[in-house]
């Protein structure tokens, strides 16, 4: 861990000013990922700008029925918020699938979007990594890549995004509210994270001096037919090998609307409009789920150790869609996959 300056932002404008004034500065809220990375010397901020006391902790309904969630709402508060439990249980479920109770108590919503990959080479400063040290090479490409990406990879990076919450947010069509030196803007969550391309060190489309102020959930929460299924190497407290957020609108057994996002397979939550469109108007049957899975996984590629993820993801998509269709969502509290 390096020596760093510390400043406490007095308001959002102050945070933006402090952030824009020092290119080496980082925002800190819950710190559950940043401090880990600082201990490993992966992140070496010149200054930490503490935003944890900014007034960004509200969950409020907007006039059009959307829900606006302050960036500093703790993950656990959000998961257990009555409006989330009732209207967006998919999001609640995804949050509870992640980390541990202690981490969820500390972690903020905005920070969750900013968490970085768990690629072991990214964490180990003694090895090459294009994300940590641009141009140094990708050690995972021909190394230990069992949990690496199968979609949207580049020659420079095959890392995955580890967030569970983001997968549900992608499925729900969430928006990210951003404030920065040139004012406020809103982007879709699916446009917030980037694919690695030639710049794997840039995880998101946040600009210099920009800060996440809120997440907005559209009115429709798919509260009847949803499921979040996380497949991992133990039953809890592990990052996803594959996770799936599925949300369906059903009329009888016919699908009138579908959202599917897949985690653990790419540098960002993976959605396919083609797959979702293909489900629309179809019966909620395994065949159609399987077809959607094929469309979602189009172009999947694997390296030496992660080939299993392609078929695993396909099966997990089918299973999750079935759970959603049957209104039997995956429990995050029982020691069992439904």
């Amino acid at each position: 861990m390096n020596n760093f300056q510390y400043a406490r932002a007095t308001d959002v404008a102050d945070a933006i000013r402090l952030l824009a004034a020092d290119l080496g500065a980082k925002l800190i809220a819950g710190g559950t990922n940043l401090i880990d990375l600082m201990k490993e010397n992966v992140e070496r901020p010149s200054r930490l700008i503490d935003i944890s006391r900014l007034p960004l902790r509200n969950v409020e309904e907007t006039a059009d029925g959307s829900l606006r969630i302050g960036a500093l709402v703790p993950n656990s508060d959000l998961a257990y918020h009555p409006l989330i439990e009732q209207r967006y249980p998919l999001l609640a479920s995804a949050i509870l699938a992640g980390a541990s109770a202690q981490l969820r108590n500390m972690a903020s919503v905005g920070g969750n979007l900013m968490q970085r990959t768990r690629c072991p080479y990214f964490y180990d400063t003694a090895t090459p990594c294009n994300k940590r040290n641009p141009g140094s090479g990708c050690s995972a490409m021909d190394g230990l890549n069992r949990n690496h990406a199968i979609l949207g990879t580049s020659a420079a990076c095959i890392a995955t995004n580890p967030s569970d919450m983001s997968v549900a947010l992608a499925a729900l069509g969430a928006l990210v509210h951003i404030a920065g030196p040139s004012g406020e803007r809103t982007i879709a969550l699916t446009d917030f994270h980037r694919l690695p391309g030639n710049t794997p060190h840039v995880d998101t489309n946040l600009g210099t001096g920009e800060i996440i102020t809120a997440i907005e959930l559209p009115p429709h929460g798919f509260a009847q037919n949803y499921s979040y299924l996380k497949i991992r190497d133990r039953m809890s407290y592990a990052f996803a090998l594959v996770s799936v957020a599925a949300a369906l609108e059903l009329e009888g057994n016919a699908i009138s609307g579908a959202r599917v996002a897949v985690g653990g397979v790419a540098h960002k939550p993976w959605r396919s409009l083609e797959a979702e469109t293909a489900l629309r108007g179809q019966a909620a049957t395994p065949d159609h789920f399987s077809h959607a899975a094929d469309l979602l996984l189009q172009g999947a590629t694997s390296r030496s150790h992660n080939g299993f993820k392609v078929e695993l993801a396909r099966r997990a998509i089918v299973r999750t869609l079935a759970q959603a269709a049957n209104a039997t969502p995956q429990s995050q509290a029982h020691k069992k996959i439904a």
Binding site: R118, Y121, D124, T127, L144, R234, Y237, K335
Partner: peptide
Amino acid sequence: RIMNANIAEYHIPVNAD
């Protein structure tokens, strides 16, 4: 080099297991 030298990535059973 050992690449999972921490108990997030070196898995042992948790209560759910």
